[in-house]
Structure formats: C-alpha cells, structure tokens
Design a protein around this nucleic acid. Sequence first.
RNA 1: GCCGAAGUGGCGGAACUGGCAGACGCGCGCGACUCAAAAUCGCGUUCCCUCGGGAUUGUGGGUUCGAGUCCCACCUUCGGCACCA
Length: 849
Amino acid sequence: MARKPDTVQKSSVPTKPEARPTIDAYRPAEIEPRWQRRWEADGLYHARIDPSRPKFYFLTMLPYTSGDLHIGHWFAMGPSDARARFLRMRGLNVTFPIGFDAFGLPAENAAIERGIHPKTWTYANIENMRRQLRSMGACWDWPREAVSADPEFYRWTQWFFLKLFEHGLAYKKMAPVDWCPKDNTTLAREQVIGEERLCERCKTPVIKKNLEQWFFRITKYADELLDFSALDWPEPVRVAQTNWIGRSQGARVRFLSASGDPIEVFTTRPDTLWGATFMVLAPEHPLVGRLTTAQQRAAVQAYLQQTLRQSDIQREAADKEKSGVFTGGTAVNPVNGERVPVWIADYVLMSYGTGAIMAVPAHDQRDFQFARKFGLEVRPVIEPPGAAQLDAATMTEAVPGYGTMVDSGPLSGTPAERAVAATIEFLESKGIGEGAVNYRLRDWLISRQRYWGAPIPIVYCPEHGQVAVPDDQLPVLLPDDVEWLPTGESPLKLHPTWRKTTCPICGRPAERDTDTMDTFMCSSWYHLRYLSPHDAQEPFDPSEYDYWMPVDTYTGGAEHATMHLIYTRFFHKALRDMGITEGHEPMRQLRNQGHILGPDGQRMSKSRGNVIDPDEQVGRYGADVVRAYLMFGYRWAEGGSWSDENIQGVVRWVHRVWTIALEAAHRALAPAGDPAGVANAGPGEAAAARTLWRRTHQAIRQVSKDLEAFEFNTVISALMELTNALSDGREAGLAETDGFRESVETLLLLTAPVAPHVTEELWARLGKPYSIHQQAWPSFDPQAMEQEAITLVVQVNGKVRDRILVAAGITEVEARRRALESDVVRRHLGGAEPRQVVFVEGRLINLVI
RNA sequence: GCCGAAGUGGCGGAACUGGCAGACGCGCGCGACUCAAAAUCGCGUUCCCUCGGGAUUGUGGGUUCGAGUCCCACCUUCGGCACCA
C-alpha cells in the first residue's frame, strides 16, 4: 500500500457507466465446491510443525454426532474459522482441527427406537457431517481429525483411565442413580420427565438406586481450579466455575448422639454454635436408622418415602415450604453439653458437607423457617452492630450478619472480627472440632450403565479384586454383536461371553466391568489426540505437544462453562502431575458464542418446525453468504433469531463485491488505451483518490482489530463501508487508477477470511497468484488517516449547536475565535460571555455560560 | 429465591478511555431504468413541531462543562442453578 495517493494515474478507457463490461453471474454452487476440492487436494490448511514460525492452536468444540450439523454449528464455527484464517494471513502457523464426539446416549436411543446399531447410526452421521463441514469452506486441518468412538481413540481414553487409577485418582464407591424399576435400567437426568419424575419410556415413577460406581478425585484439585490467573477466559465462565467449586471456610464440629455416635457437621459460622437449638440430617444420612426411636419410626419412614424420589433441584427449590420430621433422637452440642433434638429434612443434602447440620434458627433463614414451622427454639447468640439485642419471641426472620457473641459461654463478648477464629481455637483446644474448608464440588462420577461408550478397562478377580487391564491388551473393545432389548440392562451385562475373561495377575476366571465411561472423558483430552490422531504407540506425539500446546483460542457454547471446561482443566492438571503433560492449563483463551434461534425467536426444534437447515441455506445463497450473514447479523456472544429478510443485505453486498472486482479484472485485461485520461485527472479526482485511500486503511484497521476481538458484526460493516467507498470512487472516476485497483485487492484480502471462496475466485480472475489465503494480511498505514481539515463540534452548555470545518491542528484560542463567529452559536450565547471553555483536541469545543 | 447476561429507531445492531447517539444493514418511502414487474442503481428515513426549535438510549435520582457509557435505587426480558449450612 506504499503509494503516493495524490498522484492519480489514469489509463485505458474512459469510465462512463454505460461502458462497464458485462460480467459473469455469481454462481456459488459452481465456485465453492471447486475451491474446496483444490484446497484439500493441496493440503492448504494442514499445519505442520515449523519452528521458524509462531504457532497458533485454534480449537472449536468438537460437534456431537447427533445427525446433522445445524445452523448453530455454523454460528459457532464459521466466525471462528474467519478468525483462524485471519491469523494465518498474519503469518501464524495455524492449526484448526476438527473431530467428532461420537459416544453417548442419543445413539442408543436411535438403536432402540429404530433398530439401527449405534455404531451404524453414528458413523453414518459422521459421514454426513463431514460433507456439511466441507461445505462451510473452513480451514479445517483434516489430517488431524479424530473420532472418539474409534478404537484407536478410545484405547487411549481407557489408558488415561488406568493412569488415573494407578495414581489413586480413580476410585469406586456407592452412589445413587435414577432407576426405572419397570425397565430395570439407569436413567440419565434428561430421561426423567417432569415434576412427577417419570421414566421417559414407560412413565413409571423413577426411584433412586445405589450402585457401586467409579469416581475421579477432581476435588483434590479444587483449590488449583479456582486459580484463573493464567487464563483469558470470560468473566461469567470464571464466576460459574468458582461458584461450582464453591469453596467455603469454616469449621468441622463433632456432635454426639445419645447412643454415642459422632455426628459431624460443617459450619461456616462456628461463632453461632451456642445458638444451635436442633440438628438436621439429610434423609439418606447413615445414622438416621440408629437415631430414630420406635415411636417415630413410622413417621420417618413415611417422610423418606416421600423425599427420596425427588431430585436435588426439587429438594433445593427456594420457594418450597419447609418439610421435615423428628427422629425422636437427640445429640449433645459439644460446646455447652446441651441436648438438642435431631430432625431429618430434605433441605439438607447428603451430597454437600457432611449431610448433617447444626441448626441456628436465629442466624440462618432456612433454619429459622424450619424452627417457626415446627415450634423449635430460636436463640440469638450474635448481637448485630448498632442494633438492639435480638428478642427470639418477636423476630420475624433470621439475622445472618456477623456481630458480637452473646450468651456464648466463655466466648461471650467476643467482637465480630475475632468471633470465628476464637471459636475455632476453642474447638481445637477442646478437641471437639477444627478449622476446615468445604467445597461444593463433588468428585466426578464417570460410570455409565450404558453400551455406547468406552468400556471401563477393569477386571474383577475373586482373588485380586480390581485389576487394571494391561496396556498391551488395550483397547478393551466394545462388542458389536449385542442384543437390543427395548428395556433392561446394558447390553454389555447381557452379552453371553464378553464379560468373561481372565485375571491379568493370576490367569484365573474373572469378569470385566460392564459399565462404560462418561463421554466427558473423551472431550477432556481430544485436543491432545488431534496432535497425532493415528499414533499407535502413545496418546499423542510429545514433539507435536511441545510445539502446539497449549490451545491458544478455544471457542464454544457457554453451556459448557462448568462441566466440560472444568473436567478438561482437571484432566490436564492430573496428567501434568503424572508427567504426561506440561504447563498448568490446557486452553489459554476461551470465547463463547450465543445461540441462533428460529425465525420466531424460539429455540429451534423439529416439533416447532422452526429449524433452519444449513444445507438449504447454502443451496440458496452459497456458503460465503451464510458465513457472512452469521457474522454480520448478531453479536457473536449473544446470538439471536434467524432472519430471511436480513440475510438479503449480505446477499447484495457479496454481489456488489463480485461486480466491482470483476469490473476491475476486465479493465486489467483490456489493452492500454486513451492516454488522455491522465491529462484529464483534475484536482477533484485527486481528492477522491485520497479519500478512497483513507477509507481503505480505515477498513484495514477496523477489520484487523475486530477479527482479533471476536467482534464479527463490525468486521462485515467495515467491509461494506469499503465496498461503498469503492462505489463512490468509481462514480468519481477513479476506476482506472492504480489506487482503485489496490483498494479492490485490499477489499478481497480483508474479505478472504469471511468469504473464502468468492475471494479466491476473484483473486484468480484478477490474475493474482494462488492462493489468496496464502497472502500477507494488508498492513495499516497511519499516514492514510492524516487529514488537513476536521469537523469540530461546537457545544453551548454541553448541547451541540454547530459543526465547523477547521484545520486539523487548531489551537484552543483559534477554535474559540472560530466558534464565536458562528451565527447559531452567537444566538445561543445570547450575548453572554462564556464562563468556561472546554476544548477537546480534534473533537469539540464546549462554551459554558 | 440465588447467580449471570442484556435492555438504544418499525427490525438486527454501531458508538474509542465520559466527547457529534443511531455506523453498517433490513424494512419502508420517493425517483431512475422498464410496456410492466423483478433485479439493479440513486436519494430519503429516531420522534414531535408553531420550522425558531424541542424530546430521545428500560424507569427514577445523582456525579460532570458534557452520560448510552460512571454511581445509587428500581423495572423488564433471557439464560443457568446450588436453600451451600
């Protein structure tokens, strides 16, 4: 772009509109597949290790093999692709890999509903999705493709399981599952329907059943997972993860039941211990049976029946009326030796803390509601600052704040600042409790009682117990020949021979684990498999790892904020501690996109009939238009409704680019003509050329900045503005100039990441060398922005009254003089002298009276 | 109930660090081309008005020479969820 803007060079034919050459129609259906084939044949987007260039690992969340790619995938991946392409043109060695998350429940549902084997269904879907992904024209690094259901992939998923097992991070314990007693099968949360909690298939009320299942010790990493300092991740995701981990600091305290069983509780408010007037256990707490007296047994049984079918979410609903029942048992509060009644209630969860609480109704709202409902004692032990002493009889709600301890035995009078610490010291000195940290985060349950997943590579030997399948026997292959019963247990359990094996240690008969792994296992490490997807010796090639990792940018839906994105961080840290990976985090930068809704503003669904099929849109407009529209029409992080009307603006724009570029191409090929054109270049054209130059560089600046910042809608508007600038330039007679042609080329280069096919086609027709996607990104020249005259806004009392054209470097004194010359300004001053003048260089002058 | 995000023309959305609100489009109106229509191109388009202006970024306050942007209180919509002891 180094040229003298004021030297307008005219050549060839004069530019009368009617002299414009006729040009070919824009036919994306012909152009797009042609270039897609060429790029793939050339391996244009296959990135290899190149130490001479900085790398960039651009990752977009791998799609689930649900059937078709929907427009939401395009919305997630298309703009990501544009940014990856931009970074390539900037000189980075970019890999933008793709793969498939292929295990999971929908494949089994399809098998049961339609009698298709999950494998057949899944791989047919993958074929179709590959075709659709190719039609996007994204710079996919196809040789890196990985499919999580391939044995060459899940072999290593199993290997990672065994590594975790070997390092004590995988263990088995009893845990409840939702169970349909009629179908005799485990149900996923989404298969339990409605408030009534009925089985999706047979509408039987679901029950809880305890099964022995595998867990990963993610809680070991809870504190480290709270540290986001090395990450450029969106604030809402960091907040969600922080809340999910839910670290709270307090104390563990041991109460003692009448029969001498310790009942441990966790509290964040040990300073309220003297106000504990009862205890509440979760209904499933192991001591409930022992505490319940004969007299209360029937009532407790009835309550258990009623609560244990509910989901945690139902139990925890805030607006729900408190419920509970007295066990008849009591426990001793260790700080004062007082006997308090022990209740059970569904608002205490077995899965949080110890499953038991000390209830302090005066200072906890839930306990307060419970106490008032069941007539239990309310005893204030905290005096809030600056308020009168609380009176239990007249309180209408709990007072949860900190304050001076009162009625608290030896600690009475302890001020708020020291209350918690002093109580913990007291507990520790008496040996009845200690300071403790509690997390909401639970260990990751990975067992699934399903077929379509990676089998858990563990063998049960009567002699040796849980035995790891040796490395050389991996993968534990999923058998294809299984019976598809519409109901019942996992086919692996029912398979006649599969589960029968021998113990790797003693060689005697043993049984395989018949559960499979949570598919979040696969997605926790797939980004590593992309590094060397066909490596048969190791999960990934360390030299590839050293070059490419960590992932530089990761894009995907915000719905993965807590599950997938915590699991993958945990996985990485656990592998790091085993010496398998390096660095503390797998993904440096994360950005989330929103969702595309149907034209009616509702979530797309087949039953609503508002689904937008990308194949149909590509057939109608071409992939370039669909990509550009998805970038232009929405804030990427927000999403919004699909609009058949709004896409028309993008259709027109792409056609305009096509026309302008082809006109330029025709002129370039025309023989040099009338030299008179040069002589005719007047001062008006020089100014127009200067303007076009400025607008071209404005576009370079904005497109670069906005692609970097994931602000895709303004990328397109900047490109449209440059297109408009070219139209204006053409009208001003610049079409024959070198400057015009350079601007056309710049427009194509800037548009290349957005609309890769049409720009490649036009680039070729302009006679430029293949490929536009291997060209350097245009550089911004600040000189182009320099202007002699600027519009200065003149305000009176902060209101805009006039705009005056002034020299760019105008001083305050001069600006004031010029402003006072304005009739409009003088009228609004009404003869008064400005009391204050605010001058903002290059922008405005504000006269205050 | 809690957490998070967002409220700007008829619509989607712009607006740097507090400095011209409404960029870029859609839609609509007018015009050119056409026998006509479509397509295309050009012009206009926040609202009100006594044509001087006035009002305007969910609502009400505040800070400031100046607020879509900062502060306080509130309302609405969307998303998520965990009564977290």
